[in-house]
Design a protein around this nucleic acid. Sequence first.
DNA 1: CGCGACGTTGATTTGCCTCAACGATTGTGG
DNA 2: CCACAATCGTTGAGGCAAATCAACGTCGCG
Lengths: 199, 199
Amino acid sequence: MNTNVMPYHLLKQNIAKHINFSDKEFELYAKHFYLNSFKKKEYILKQGNICSFEGFVTKGCFRVYTLDVDGNEHVLYFAVKDWWITDIDSFTNQIPSYLSIQALEDSEVLLINKEDKERLYKELPNVEKLFRVMTQKTHVSMQRRMIQNHSLTADQRYQYFLSKYPEIAQKLTNLQLASYLGISHEFLSKIRRKIMQKK
Amino acid sequence: MNTNVMPYHLLKQNIAKHINFSDKEFELYAKHFYLNSFKKKEYILKQGNICSFEGFVTKGCFRVYTLDVDGNEHVLYFAVKDWWITDIDSFTNQIPSYLSIQALEDSEVLLINKEDKERLYKELPNVEKLFRVMTQKTHVSMQRRMIQNHSLTADQRYQYFLSKYPEIAQKLTNLQLASYLGISHEFLSKIRRKIMQKK
DNA sequence: CGCGACGTTGATTTGCCTCAACGATTGTGG
DNA sequence: CCACAATCGTTGAGGCAAATCAACGTCGCG
């Protein structure tokens, strides 16, 4: 396997943020991941199924969401290049998933399944730390977002998202973004109009 | 050290949920933790300081909160017996803390500092997994809570909290609970009245 | 072409906030 | 131990943010 080709190169850069791997170690790591493609609107995970993978997005865009008891969609996050996708609870504990993950455009992901990940932990003990650190970071940003949801208005949250993730915002419909922000799409539409008028 | 005394016994039970330790391993683990007491209203961590510990609560109650830019308090969670407290971002990366942690009553905590935790990782590689799993679980429940904040009314969130954490609710003032629920304490008071009237 | 998904807009309603006032309870210093 | 302050809980009036419902225009796609 040539780990210098595009998708694997991205993966290499991604983990380099957290850990120092030799080329040999990385190769050992990378060989457990296999590339997979998903067409627009295709599901990589459906709520209720058991999540069999952890995925690293190398192309395209996914939405990670859940249906609540009233049938309303709530988007937890959008994953583009360099993001990870999984239902970690379902994956780790092999229980039915609480989340759905759907491609918003034609996309590509590097996937690892559970057995290979276990094997990886044994082969490269450092990987345990890698995933701990990654989970911690996700956890911290989730905490921040929860505070934001309480302290900012929908308007402010929208503008924050635009400034933080301009490339993602571009790919989304009003409806999808509204569901991430936790507001109705009608209201999002009104927010946009107000902002337009100000400029 | 006798690891059968109360505080350490609690710690043992806590980690037994996630991992299998021999008595000897546990002793190696536990000896890095030292017991510390905090009086009511005392701070174990103040926003802006660097968090020097991870703590396991064995007695009492803490509130973990942050002040936003407008000076409003937002409680992330309350920690009673069997809960962990830290600002994981500040602790891991040795950066100023985003959180404050205060004792709501006279309390006791088993603490471990950063150097000892690093040492622990080397002595007992399993500990890496332990903390990864713990972080994952926290992360999952935070995800759930974020969805709830979007899909439930304040009334429903209040009743959910009461049913899930009756012992904690008992220890809290209206103000503290309101700040956890993300509503004003006046409105919480009105919710309580409505519920009373229905019964 | 026609249908379905998406975006916009307005009218109305509702959940929750803010401000202000006041009693009840707790804590504290003299 | 009391007096007084500080904190906490309750209540009401008024206002704003955002939801809901309904109607309609637009666009892309089979």
